[in-house]
Nucleic acid binder design. Structure first.
Lengths: 129, 129
DNA sequence: CCTTGACTTAGAGCGCGCTCTAATTCCTAT
DNA sequence: ATAGGAATTAGAGCGCGCTCTAAGTCAAGG
């Protein structure tokens, strides 16, 4: 009933984490199974309890997903992060590669959008008559 | 051999059209079945012959697809075009709606890309030590 | 005690956009 | 005449990223 009344249990329920992060409950569990999220605490009941760190990580996931990184790539990145310090070069390479892909895609979308906008202005002229 | 009255072989084969347009042969046929392409000439053998107009239309399809318009939306647009003149307002509305969606998505990608770039510069510092 | 409701899991299902297969026909060259 | 290669069709298959279902556990309220 009350979503957040666990004085001894720190952390958000999966429903609250979903609401806070903008990712659905189903998707949060899916990400965990897919190896994108790990180490989420559990209450005595076995229910997940998301920490602030978990939420911050989910925000990273969102940035990667919404810029089009495939699940596989994100999993690779997550694995590097969980390995701990020492592989920063690899993480950097992965992110730089992604950055290049996103920039290329942005450029292409801008080009094609310009085409669409030219078509729009043609129709605007026609309709204005 | 009978004299050939009108050699209607004045278009590209599907293989050539694929090469010229950057869309696969399979996808060209799929687009036709899906209602995105219509009115392609046929040789006496039944083989497709793509005209310059067809290629120009395929270029439009590419612009819409690569800016993320779903097949359904493109089909709607195609139907409006095939209906002929008189529905320019509808076409315009459809394209304007698409433009808004693309711009919104571009803005979001830029935001999330900026986040990734901040992460990159953090790793660059770490690696530079 | 019993119901309600949020949670758990493994696994099935879905929508999208291709991508490929199989069986067949047709054209061209040797 | 025959072999090869390119085209045709309907329909199956695939990879992705969710999204949902079924069956069950658990805690609290009436």
């Amino acid at each position: 009933m009350e979503p957040n009344t666990a004085p001894l249990e720190t952390g958000l329920t999966i429903a609250d984490a979903a609401e806070a992060s903008g990712v659905s409950v189903h998707t949060l569990r899916y990400y965990e199974r897919a190896g994108l999220i790990g180490g989420v605490d559990r209450a005595a009941s076995g229910h997940r309890r998301y920490s602030e760190d978990d939420l911050a990580w989910i925000e990273v996931l969102r940035c990667l997903r919404e810029t089009g990184m495939p699940i596989r790539g994100i999993r690779r990145y997550a694995e590097l992060v969980w390995e701990g310090e020492g592989n920063e070069r690899e993480r950097l390479a992965l992110l730089e590669e992604h950055r290049a892909a996103v920039r290329a895609q942005l450029a292409q979308v801008r080009t094609h959008l310009a085409f669409v906008e030219r078509k729009i202005s043609i129709y605007e002229e026609k309709v204005d008559e």
